[in-house]
Amino acid sequence: MKKLSDLAKTIRSKNAGVDKITFDIIFTDRSVYDKVRQCKVLTPATVAKLYNIEEQRIADFVEYDPACAIKFTIYRVRPSGSAGDSDIFGAQQYAPLLDVAVDI
């Protein structure tokens, strides 16, 4: 059993426009990328559970082979930079992904 942070080169989040935040999990080794996909630890359902959101809040979920990356995007509840928004750039929303356990 390993953590996603042990397996991925990059795990990041960032605004995708003013209404969405996008998450990228990028691997250097294609075989590791393939294994993580096969394990199904990152799917719309697991991501929704991890972040405690309805699956409908996930706007996109893509396995992007050219970059060995898994990418998903969620809708914000309110646009970026509204009063009370604590992450205007959406850059610190990825932390829960670091500890996702992968049976590998």
Binding site: A16, V62, A67, A69
Partner: peptide, 15 residues
Amino acid sequence: IASVAGHAMYERSNP
């Protein structure tokens, strides 16, 4: 290849 392909997905919903 990784950095250029990776950048294609930066800050966007889909790559």
